[in-house]
Nucleic acid binder design. Structure first.
Lengths: 146, 146
DNA sequence: ATATTTGCAAAGGATTTGCACACAC
DNA sequence: GTGTGTGCAAATCCTTTGCAAATAT
């Protein structure tokens, strides 16, 4: 198949696949590409629809399998919305978190991790070691706040 | 039906129901009771099983309806685990967050909100107003860390 | 007495799985 | 060539809904 995606993200993903012994398929590259081109978190079906613009025969199961693999690899971040729905975005390079505007769905990154400072305090106070944290902020962005 | 639950939590819930024009049923009281007696987050099915010890004929749909109502009322907090499962716990009185030990499932409260300090900063830097936040910490508690 | 709530069963959605074929390496 | 990945359809799982009977006020 003709190769359509070749930005640095796609190249990095290819390297990662090679290192992990995974194959670099058009479907996988298309998912990377679609997530990268979006300003907002995308649902499974939105991802499928966008991927189908390039690869019309793509099946839903492939998207599920691909995204699960990408989350596992740390390539993609899954968000849990309050109502229980899931959406996906490319994981930010630095350790940052995302805010989602509930009016326009735009995602805004912010580079500070509010949890980082807690680690030591919690260890001392409660003997609890944080291995994994999950922060999600919902609100209104500048444009929608008027 | 004979009334089995009468701690302060149950009394508070009853008052809340009355104020909201909702009925205080044995099933609802049992859910409150079960969540209150647990050290850990409970899944829908765990809640159903525990409620059935008191009320064997309880149906799954009732648990779903009850929990949704309780989350709406702010009586109960829903957690989204990384794998997408949901669990429930009684909402803490103060604004606090919870840590879950991934070994023993125990929930530990901590009263500081790491997000609170962010509000002003984010507003200034990005013009973003946080309306809703969702923090979940996973790790290992003192006993399991050995 | 009456409006709400419940239990049951069926419907609806989302996600996963099995398998033959296609494809990347 | 070989083993992994894909597409399709069926299966499974989770959650919601409709409705008659039960029940809290």
């Amino acid at each position: 198949m003709k190769e359509k995606f070749s930005c640095s993200h796609e190249q990095n993903a290819k390297k990662l696949f090679r290192n992990e012994g995974l194959k670099s398929t058009p479907q996988r590259m298309a998912v990377i590409h679609v997530l990268h081109s979006s300003e907002k978190y995308l649902s499974i079906n939105e991802i499928l629809d966008s991927v189908k613009e390039f690869l019309p025969k793509t099946g839903l199961a492939t998207i599920y399998r691909t995204l699960e693999m990408f989350v596992e690899l740390g390539l993609v971040t899954r968000v849990h919305f309050p109502d229980g729905c899931h959406s996906y975005t490319i994981s930010p390079k630095d350790h940052s978190h995302q805010m989602v505007c509930t009016k326009c769905d735009t995602v805004i990154n912010f580079p500070d991790c509010p949890i980082e400072g807690l680690n030591e305090t919690l260890m001392k106070q409660k003997g609890f070691k944080i291995n994994n944290h999950f922060v999600q902020l919902f609100g209104e962005c500048e444009d929608c706040r008027i």
